[in-house]
Design a binder for these strands. Structure first.
Length: 846
RNA sequence: GGGCGCAUAGCUCAGCUGGGAGAGCGUCCGCUUCACGCGCGGAAGGUCACAGGUUCGAGCCCUGUUGCGCCCACCA
């Protein structure tokens, strides 16, 4: 190391993330790159980034996700894989509409005044101006995404892939147009899928309403929470086995207010023990009723329009908002003495996940995708273990939904998105094509009009793992990087996204899109509530990076990631920041104090050397195994314990006497080991804490590539010595106790068994008396002048000995416990017996 | 209504297939020790939610109870 570098190290007594992170990231990008080498023949490791919304800002979920993925990418890169982390953003129809339409409102206009083309132009302008800020924010975290191939679900090639997918599924009959009941969000002015409906608690009332039986003076009483839909009733249903009503089945009921005559039908769906046991059927405004209606061939009437108001079919109620119409209908029923009951009723009502509006089930002509066959294939893949959820129990969410899958409404009445590639001629024929057709495929008419709707955003997301690689073109990247290895995501989009990717990957590529699906924790606010901007409970990860550094933030997030719901704990981030600083300073010590000509090498000259090499081997083995097994919290914890406790607290301290000593050979040897352990530790810690480790790496002796692309060390298990690890723990306790006694003003006396570790540290304790005893089974410590404590120790040793002896006398234990456990207990009894007699001897002697 | 998960030190959490309760922060005591005061050394602090059960032995396994979080869900 030259003097300038030396001075720099001397000067920088603290690790300052803000001063190094941007510079290091820039070097990684420029000197190494993250784009993969499709032409190489190395084994691949691929992760598709869940594309964040273009409108998005990095939040805690992204940060956790990004950290986990980047940790895996770095690990595999160092292990020699050709790595690719697919990068890009999602066009997010509804979210973008929200942003732009808000701007338009502020300007006193709206999208309809602006017109479709101008609106879309405006979205693109906005997109070009703001860019995908979130992608830049991933860089702050240190994420080694393939930025050079950033994709957008609305870019040209991607659009082609989406249309291709639509056309092929249509060709197989899996996509069709139909009049069905859909979830209509009046706020968005569009349909939404079942998965975008959030069920919220609502306090409504359950009304009991009398329907006259035609030709009689009798009534049939039904229960309903939506009296305004009475206007669209087309039947009344009872259970076929319900004795109270069987005689009425086949007769006709008269719908109140409108006076329509409707059949009384029998259907298994009706519950006999709910309400009155009689159910009014409104196929036009209730999904269940819709199904019943289709089973019985009932008429489908609509009285609520797309604007959330009563339509013309509602007669005198036309034009009223639904809530108001409900009250007016109730008043009418009351006046006509048909309302015979009203009680408070609490239930769950569907609301739009995006806008929060109450979902209005409506019948509408929409595009649907048939899911059952696709789901069956995907299910088989997961059941066979070719795609596995981690943790495994998360697959329940998936199976529950997949096993009950229903057709997916994919058309949205929005403008921003992939416009449905279907053209209609005046005769109503459909021409489906990826390119604008010249004429109707059926009648040849040239008067074609394209379907105005766009596709559900999740439709295009389902192609992410292969459309980003060039599909449907047979590109090299597609051939080499599909399928990917791991998907890292949160469980709230298992069905929205993961399941659909599995289905589409199998359908179009014939192979699952990823083998591992790692479902991350969800980080809640510190008070246990959901983290959200609107609640004000969000924590900005960029803030954390500013205050603790990216390494600290990454460490903290990984440490928090152990259970499925975890409260945000800033202390863990702080811990990570401190660990980075500790590592920096320990490295300064090693680099500044090591002999100038020493180079990294595992010299096992002393028992301490053998011990730290054993711990290094054990930790390397453990950390790699944990990372590969997705146990990030445990991995990071093992790193902390090794760096802070084993290396800094004990080994570095124990190395000082040799390092500062007169023996040149000793100085050299311990320098080599220190450098060796440091070098290995930096590599091991790099995936979790890339910046500080890379920074230190640059100061290590010798010409070397950046740590980012350096090989990950193998655990050198030849160095591993568990007995020594065990002894070190015991000896550390002896040193601690001696320190305690010295602190109390007494003179600690240590009986040192052969091979005692940390002798240097012991010798530094003021007043300590060390008695070497080659016969001692284990080292021990007492205060020489403190007879009372010696007696206490004796009593403790006797108690321990007796406890172990009693356990051995317990027949249940000796007969049932595993042999090595019994053996351990026997050793314990002997050890304490020896210690007791030893202490007795010394008590009597003194 | 169904599913997943959580209750362990003041706080946030570890605790592997059952075999003498741990970490970080906080608190208290002592340190201008030549890598680090974002530090060093030491200490105090726990009926492992509650009640049963299995076992020689339970924080861990089983049953139930209570409190909490999240996901899914077409009983009007």
């Amino acid at each position: 190391m030259d003097d300038a570098r030396r001075d720099e190290l001397e000067r920088r007594t603290r690790h300052q993330p803000e001063a190094v992170e941007a510079r290091l990231f820039e070097r990684w990008e420029r000197e190494c790159g993250f784009s993969g080498e499709p032409e190489s023949d190395r084994e691949r490791f691929v992760i598709p980034l869940p594309p964040p919304n273009v409108t998005g800002e990095l939040h805690m979920g992204h940060a956790l996700n990004g950290t986990i993925q980047d940790t895996l990418m770095r690990l595999r890169r160092m292990q020699g894989y050709d790595t690719l982390w697919i990068c890009g953003t999602d066009h997010a129809s509804i979210a973008v509409h929200a942003v732009i339409e808000k701007q338009l409102r502020a300007e006193g206009t709206n999208r309809f005044e602006l017109g479709r083309e101008a609106f879309i132009r405006r979205v693109w302008e906005w997109r070009r101006a703001t860019g995908a800020t979130i992608i830049q924010q991933f860089k702050r975290l240190g994420c080694t995404l393939d930025y050079d191939h950033e994709r957008f679900t609305m870019d040209e090639g991607y659009v082609r892939a989406v249309l291709e997918m639509f056309v092929r599924l249509y060709g197989k009959g899996l996509i069709y147009r139909d009049n069905r009941i859909v979830n209509w969000c009046p706020g968005c002015g569009s349909t939404v899928s079942d998965l975008e409906v959030r069920h919220e608690h609502a306090a409504d009332a359950l009304y009991e309403v009398r329907y006259r039986i035609a030709g009689t003076e009798d009534f049939l009483t039904v229960a309903t929470v939506r009296p305004e839909t009475i206007l669209a009733d087309t039947a009344v249903a009872v259970h076929p086995d319900d004795d109270r009503y069987t005689h009425l089945v086949g007769k006709t009921a008269i719908v109140p207010i409108v006076g329509r005559e409707v059949p009384i039908i029998a259907d298994e769906y009706v519950k006999t023990d709910f309400g009155t046991g009689a159910l009014k059927i409104t196929p036009g405004h209730d999904p269940n009723d819709f199904e019943i209606g289709r089973r019985h061939g009932l008429e489908e009437l609509s009285v609520i329009g797309f604007d959330g108001r009563m339509n013309d079919a509602a007669g005198e109620f036309a034009g009223l908002p639904v809530a108001e119409a409900r009250q007016r209908v109730i008043d009418r029923l009351f006046d006509e003495q048909l309302l015979v009951g009203e009680q408070p009723y609490e239930h769950e009502v569907g609301h739009c996940d995006r806008s929060g509006d109450r979902i209005e089930p409506l019948i509408s002509l929409q595009w649907f995708m048939e899911m059952q066959s696709l789901a069956a294939a995907a299910n088989a893949e997961v059941r066979a273990g070719r795609a596995r959820f981690i943790p495994k129990n998360q697959e329940n969410i998936y199976f529950h939904w997949m096993d009950n899958i229903r057709p997916w409404c994919v058309s949205r009445q929005l403008w921003w998105g992939h416009q449905i590639p279907v053209w209609y001629c005046p005769d109503g024929h459909q021409t489906v094509a990826t390119e604008t057709p010249e004429a109707c495929a059926e009648c040849g008419s040239a008067e074609l009009e394209r379907d105005p709707d766009v596709l559900d955003t999740w439709f295009s997301s389902s192609l992410w793992p292969f459309a980003t690689l060039g599909w449907p073109e047979p590109t090299e990247r597609l051939a080499v990087y599909y399928p990917s290895n791991v998907l890292v995501t949160a469980r709230d989009i298992i069905n929205l996204w993961v399941a659909r990717m599995l289905m589409m990957g199998l359908e179009f590529m014939g192979e699952r899109p990823f083998s591992d699906i790692y479902i991350t924790s969800i980080i809640q606010a510190a008070d246990g509530r959901r983290m959200s901007k609107s609640l004000g409970t969000g924590v900005n990860p960029l803030d954390l990076i500013d205050r603790y550094g990216a390494d600290g933030t990454r460490y903290g997030l990984l440490k928090m990631s152990s259970t499925q719901d975890v409260r945000f704990a800033e202390g863990m981030i702080d811990e990570g920041g401190k660990l980075a600083n500790k590592l920096w300073n320990a490295s300064r010590f090693v680099l500044l104090k090591a002999e100038a000509d020493a180079s990294p090498s595992p010299e096992a000259a002393t028992v301490e050397d053998r011990w730290i090499l054993s711990r290094l081997a054990g930790t390397t083995d453990e950390v790699l195994r944990l990372l590969e097994g997705y146990e990030f919290a445990a991995a990071v914890k093992a790193l902390y314990a090794f760096i802070w406790n084993d290396f800094c607290d004990w080994y570095v301290e124990a190395s000082k006497s040799r390092l500062y000593g007169d023996d040149a050979a000793g100085r050299r040897s311990v320098s080599s080991t220190l450098l060796w352990v440091l070098e290995r530790t930096l590599a091991l810690a790099h995936p979790a804490m890339p910046f500080v480790t890379e920074e230190i790496w640059g100061f290590l002796p010798g010409d070397r590539a950046m740590l980012l692309v350096s090989p990950m060390p193998q655990p050198e298990l030849g160095h591993r010595d568990r007995d020594l690890d065990e002894q070190a723990r015991a000896d550390q306790e002896v040193v601690s106790e001696a320190r305690y006694l010295a602190g109390r003003g007494t003179t600690p006396q240590v009986i040192a068994a052969p091979g005692f570790l940390f002798r240097d540290l012991l010798e530094r304790i003021p007043g300590v008396v060390i008695v070497d005893d080659v016969d001692a089974a284990a080292s021990s410590v007492v205060a020489a002048e403190d007879r009372a404590s010696l007696e206490a120790k004796l009593a403790e040793a006797i108690a321990e000995r007796d406890r172990a002896t009693a356990k051995l006398a317990n027949e249940g234990f000796t007969s049932r416990a595993p042999a090595q456990l019994v053996e351990a207990e026997r050793e314990k009894a002997e050890r304490y017996a020896a210690e007791a007699s030893e202490l007795e001897r010394r008590l009597n002697g003194s």
